[in-house]
Each structure stands twice: as structure tokens, then as C-alpha cells.
Amino acid sequence: MSPIRVVWGSASAPTAMASYDAALARAGIENYNLVSVSSVIPADVDVEAVGTAPDLGPAGERLTVVESRATTAGPGRVSAALAWSQAADDGPGLFYEVAGETGREDVERRVREGLSAGQELRDWAFTDPHVAVESSQAESGSYTTALVAAVYGKSEPIL
């Protein structure tokens, strides 16, 4: 089974959508149609924090993701965080995401709290959590997006 790769990026541009597209490019997933799913990790799947995605297939295909992202008009700080933990013995797991116009420490604290709350809802023995955070300062006159995404496997044809 293909791994789930955690990727991240941030970028500034003259419009909100352009900054989002540029942040996707920094993460290596700009050429796909992203389909968001909730936050359950299937059993027997490895999760790898890689930063930038490798080639995941032809441009224009569908890519399944759990995404944390925030965009702000400068000046200001924007941050995104994704936390995950899997059940012991290759069981299922959870992703939790938090993003906002705030600092790195705030989103990391909040995403850990969310993951802990999600773990309490399930009768699974979880491993230690992992967290990926992306944060960037937005300059006046531009938009800045920070994102962290968990990419499920490779792309698939959309048609």
C-alpha cells in the first residue's frame, strides 16, 4: 500500500489564490485536483513527513488529501499545523488540522489538543503524536498562505 506523505509550504503573491497556488507548489502538489477527506488514517499505512511531494502522477489527476491551510493579507503571521497518531500494531489513526492568522506555537498547541480529544473518542492504543507546522510572515501589500497536507498515495484519473 502506498504511504501517506505529509508535505508543507508557504508563499506570498499578489492575490489570495495565487499565494495558495504558490504554497501548493512549494509542497509539490500544485498540479493536482485536491479532494479533501476527513481525518482517518487507514490501518497498515505508513505516514512519512517528507516536506515536498515526489512525482505523484500526471497533472490534472485527483489527489486525496487532509489539508490545513490559512491565508492572510499582510502584514501579519499565518500558520498551519497537522498532527497525527496511529494505533499501535499497525492499526488505524487520526489526523487533526489547525490553521489561522496566528503564530507557530499557538497552532501547534491547538492541534495537539484537538488530536488528544479525537484520541479520547476512540478505543485505540495510540502511538506518540507527530506534528508538522508551517508558518510565515506576510508583508504589507501581499497575501501569504501557509499549508500542511497529508497526501494519500498517488494521483488517480479524475475522468
Rank of each mutant, 00 (worst) to 15 (best):
G76A: 05
N31C: 09
V131A: 04
V7I: 04
V133F: 11
A16V: 10
E139P: 06
P75N: 11
P14W: 13
G74D: 11
T144K: 06
D128A: 15
A88K: 13
V151P: 15
S12C: 04
G57E: 04
F95W: 07
S2N: 15
A83T: 03
S142T: 09
L82A: 00
P54N: 02
A53I: 04
A53L: 07
T102E: 11
L121F: 03
Q86T: 13
Y32T: 10
P42N: 03
E61S: 03
G114M: 09
S136C: 12
R77S: 07
T102D: 06
G114K: 07
A49H: 02
Y152C: 02
A81V: 04
A59I: 00
V66F: 08
A27W: 03
S135V: 12
E139K: 08
E67C: 00
Y152W: 10
V50F: 10
G93Y: 14
A99G: 09
T144H: 03
G28R: 03
R104Q: 12
L56N: 12
T71G: 02
H130R: 15
V50T: 15
E67P: 01
G91H: 09
G91Q: 12
R112G: 02
L159R: 13
A73I: 11
Q86V: 10
S136W: 02
L159C: 01
V65F: 06
V66M: 07
N33P: 01
Q137S: 11
V40S: 06
H130V: 11
E30P: 03
L147I: 08
D55N: 14
Y96H: 14
L121H: 13
T15W: 09
M1H: 14
H130Q: 13
G51D: 03
A49C: 00
V45N: 04
D46Q: 10
T71D: 01
A43P: 05
L34Q: 05
P42A: 10
A49R: 13
A138N: 10
D55L: 08
A49P: 00
L159V: 05
P42F: 01
Y20Q: 15
T52Y: 01
V35C: 06
V107K: 04
T52S: 08
V111T: 15
R62M: 09
V47N: 05
V107H: 00
V7P: 09
K154I: 10
G118C: 03
V65Y: 04
A18H: 00
D21S: 12
V66E: 07
A16D: 11
D55Q: 09
G51R: 02
D128V: 08
A81N: 00
E61Q: 15
G141M: 07
V65G: 09
W124H: 12
